[in-house]
């Protein structure tokens, strides 16, 4: 199988997913009743009328974790090509990557000591 044919398979799988959804949609249209009312369409809040907007202000506590995640995720992308080529890179590649991982671990330790990863 060629390179493009294998990605064509991926595309076909996604198209099949869309098709299945379409079939289910038609089936549900045919079988399901539809008589909406204002109460039925209101937001669920354990039976009482909803208070305020559903998109209320929320404090995202893991904001700093998110920043840290971006850094580490890019690092993970760097590790994969190296992991595949390790055999041919040999000792040179190994030491380079150990330094790289070492710096990242230092960064993680710094973040923990600094209290970034404390949940308050």
């Amino acid at each position: 199988m060629t390179y493009f044919e294998s990605y064509l398979t991926v595309g076909a799988f996604i198209a099949l997913g869309a098709l299945l959804v379409g079939v289910v949609l038609v089936l549900a249209r045919a079988l399901a009743p539809s008589n909406p009312s204002a109460e039925k369409l209101s937001t669920y809040e354990c039976g009482v009328d909803p208070v305020g907007s559903g998109w209320s202000q929320t404090y995202v506590r893991y904001y700093l974790y998110g920043l840290l995640f971006v850094i580490f995720d890019i690092e993970a992308v760097f590790i994969f090509p190296w992991a595949i080529q390790l055999e041919s890179l040999g000792m040179f590649g190994l030491i380079e990557m150990l330094v790289f991982i070492g710096i990242l671990v230092l960064g993680l330790v710094y973040a923990i000591r600094k209290g970034v990863l404390r949940w308050e």
């Binding site: 996604i14 869309a18 399901a32 039925k40 209101s42």
Partner: peptide
């Protein structure tokens, strides 16, 4: 489940609301 009414709440962001389960399944 096929016989159950398909309810999209008035307040909801309808296009995203309808697309989200499809994305998860795909």
């Amino acid at each position: 489940f096929f016989q159950k009414e398909d309810i999209v709440p008035t307040d909801a962001d309808a296009p995203v609301f309808k697309l989200a389960p499809v994305l998860v399944l795909m």
